[in-house]
Design a binder for these strands. Structure first.
Lengths: 193, 193
DNA sequence: CCGATTATAGAGACTCCTCTCTAATATTGT
DNA sequence: ACAATATTAGAGAGGAGTCTCTATAATCGG
């Protein structure tokens, strides 16, 4: 029906992930992506309406890939303490398996021009956010934790703490020490009490 | 001896802090700083050799201001558990008192073009880093924690965890909830065991 | 083989930023 | 008053990045 494409969307997003991991969101420019895959800049604009759309797509594809596996792990154990600890371990393991994507997630959506996203992109981001909040609220309820401070403590234990453990290494492009998964599990368990 | 200056170094760095807190390191451009204080760009170049030097100075001034108070708090209690918890509480309190500077510190030196800094700037950064590592090693020793995993756990408890507690709010430009200092102290105490 | 369709290809306008350079200006010591 | 000096003031060259626009190329159904 038409000319076959040499550069498809995922290939361009893969290049964007590499650039983001290496130089941060600022390094994700249309011309840098084009150069990485050997395409002219026009081909990148053929796939993405503009730089804002590219940033939104690379962020959302990455965060949705992570969340998919994270929800599965969190829901895999009926005991809330074990589920929380397993989710923390999973965050570290996933970061080890996907260091570039994990390095990208250490930035925030704001660094990927979230303020300028289209309605559709913003909606996707909100949806993911909503599901995470709901999962954490469920966990907090199962733990019998009450009040906003307790909810925040759960959120820190399950999400922010494992991210802290991997942040420095990923930013530096270094591999994670072997014991990091265990450390995440222990610390999260300690905070869930 | 000479014409008095309308724009001094601290005034320009203050503007850089505001810009970094608002738009991240990418927003700290020579022209943006000049515009903030109402100066022509030439006046900014009169104070700083280039953008790299400005980024280094704003990062170092901020991190050194924070560390100065942090060391005082950490060294203020001979009991290592209480000292660690107090340091965690202090990080939150300092962030509440200096939200823009704290928002800047949530980025890393790498985001402030650390790779391109002058020797002198790099040396200042290394010195601060070294002092922090030494303080944490002292704390770990006083706690009887042995091995790299235990050292990392102390470092997470005293540094990364309180930063996690303030990260989301500071990035969003929101004020910290009232209970955050208590939460930091509790979580750090829980991790120090 | 032809027309429709979908891509690639890349030139070029436009904007924003960095940095340099020259000129003008205000203050101090003599 | 005058020289010396530190600083403001701002024009403008040069580079990087975004985005638009036109031309060209490859594939498929008929």
């Amino acid at each position: 029906m038409a000319r076959p494409s040499r550069f498809d969307t995922d290939q361009l997003l893969d290049a964007a992930v590499r650039l983001a991991a290496e130089s941060g969101p600022a390094g994700v420019t249309m011309s840098a992506v084009a150069k990485q895959v050997g395409a002219p800049s026009g081909s990148v604009y053929h796939r993405f309406a503009g730089r804002t759309a590219l940033l939104a797509e690379v962020w959302l594809r990455t965060v949705e890939r992570f969340q998919e596996s994270w929800f599965a792990v969190l829901g895999g154990d009926p005991d809330p303490r074990r589920a929380g600890a397993a989710a923390a371990r999973h965050t570290v393991a996933w970061s080890r398996a996907h260091p570039q994507e994990a390095a990208l997630l250490l930035y925030g959506a704001a660094d990927f021009a979230r303020a300028e996203w289209s309605e559709e992109h913003a909606r996707r981001a909100d949806e993911g956010h909503r599901r995470v909040r709901a999962a954490l609220a469920g966990l907090a309820a199962a733990l019998g934790a009450e009040g906003p401070a307790a909810a925040e403590r759960v959120s820190v234990a399950v999400i922010d703490l494992p991210l802290s453990l991997v942040r420095r290494r990923l930013r530096a492009g270094e591999p994670l020490p072997a014991h990091t998964e265990d450390l995440a599990e222990e610390c999260t368990a300690a905070l869930l009490g």
